[in-house]
């Protein structure tokens, strides 16, 4: 699974990561307004959140060992 890391010392809680993720990976904590990756299993490593973060607080660490359905099949 990919890891989505937010450096809370840099994060301004602007919400751009939540806005830019088209796979609905993020939620925003109601009390602290802090976005976090609630569904990292649905991340497709497009990096849109990372390029959209205005202060460089977010990093997507790609898991290159994720399973992929077989393209040749077994028949």
């Amino acid at each position: 699974m990919n890891l989505i890391k937010i450096d809370s010392t840099l994060c301004t809680k602007c919400g751009m990561c939540f806005k830019s993720c088209w796979n609905d990976v993020f939620r925003v904590d109601k009390a602290t307004r802090q976005p976090y990756a609630a569904y990292p299993e649905d991340c497709v490593e497009c990096n849109y959140c990372e390029v959209s973060c205005p202060v460089g607080a977010l990093t997507v660490i790609i898991d290159y060992a994720k399973p992929m359905a077989s393209c040749y099949g077994n028949k």
Partner: peptide
């Protein structure tokens, strides 16, 4: 997620 994986395994193979 479980069923999505199964349907992907049906659709993906070239044959």
């Amino acid at each position: 997620a479980e069923l999505t994986w199964k349907i992907q395994c049906i659709m993906t193979p070239v044959p």
